[in-house]
Simulated scan of single mutants.
Amino acid sequence: MQLIFDGHNDVLLRLLNNMQGGSDPVAEFRDGTDQGHIDGPRARAGGLAGGLCAIYISSGHFELRQPGEDGHYATPLEAPLERQPSLDIALAMAAIAYRLDRAGAWTLCRTTSDIRAAIEKGKFAAVLHMEGCEAIDKDLVALETFYAAGLRSLGPVWSRNNIFGHGVPFAYPMGPDTGPGLTEAGFELIRACNRLGILVDLSHITEKGFWDVAKTSDQPLIASHSNAHALTPVARNLTDKQMEAIRDSRGLVGLNYATTMLRADGQESADTPLSDMVRHVDHMVERMGIDCVALGSDFDGATIPADIRDAAGNQKLVAALAAAGYGTEDLAKICRDNWLRVLGQAWHEA
Rank of each mutant, 00 (worst) to 15 (best):
G254C: 07
T232D: 00
T259A: 14
P180A: 15
K215A: 14
I246W: 03
G179T: 02
S217G: 07
R250I: 00
T216Y: 12
G251F: 06
R250M: 09
D212R: 00
Q242H: 12
A214I: 00
K208L: 15
W211V: 04
E244S: 08
I246D: 06
P180L: 12
C193E: 05
K215Q: 13
A192H: 15
A223I: 12
T183R: 02
G181H: 01
K208R: 14
E207Q: 14
E207M: 11
R247A: 15
R247K: 15
D201V: 01
L252S: 01
T206Y: 05
T260S: 13
N194S: 03
R247I: 04
L252E: 01
K241D: 15
Q219D: 14
P233G: 03
A185F: 15
F210M: 06
V213Q: 07
I198F: 09
K241C: 00
G209K: 08
E244I: 11
N256A: 11
A230I: 05
A245Y: 10
D240H: 13
H225G: 07
D248F: 11
L189S: 11
T216S: 13
G181M: 06
N237P: 06
S217H: 09
G254A: 05
S203N: 09
W211P: 07
T216E: 13
K208H: 04
E244Q: 12
A192T: 14
S224T: 15
T183C: 11
L231M: 13
D240P: 09
A258M: 13
I190E: 11
V253Q: 10
G209M: 05
W211Q: 06
L189A: 00
T260E: 15
H225C: 10
N194D: 15
G186Y: 07
A230E: 12
A228R: 03
M243A: 03
L199R: 12
N256K: 07
D218T: 14
A185Y: 14
L196M: 14
Q242C: 00
S226G: 05
I222D: 04
T206M: 04
T206F: 00
G186E: 08
L189E: 02
H225S: 10
R250N: 10
I222P: 00
S249K: 04
S224M: 06
T239N: 04
D201C: 12
I190P: 10
E207D: 13
D201N: 10
V200Q: 14
Q242T: 01
N227W: 01
S224D: 06
D248G: 09
V234A: 03
L255C: 12
L238E: 03
V213W: 06
S203P: 13
T216V: 08
L238A: 07
G179M: 11
S224N: 03
D201E: 10
S249T: 11
L252P: 04
G251S: 10
L238K: 00
T216G: 01
T260N: 10
I222E: 00
G197F: 04
T183A: 02
A223D: 01
I198A: 04
F187T: 07
K208W: 03
A235D: 01
S203M: 02
G186N: 13
T216C: 11
R191D: 03
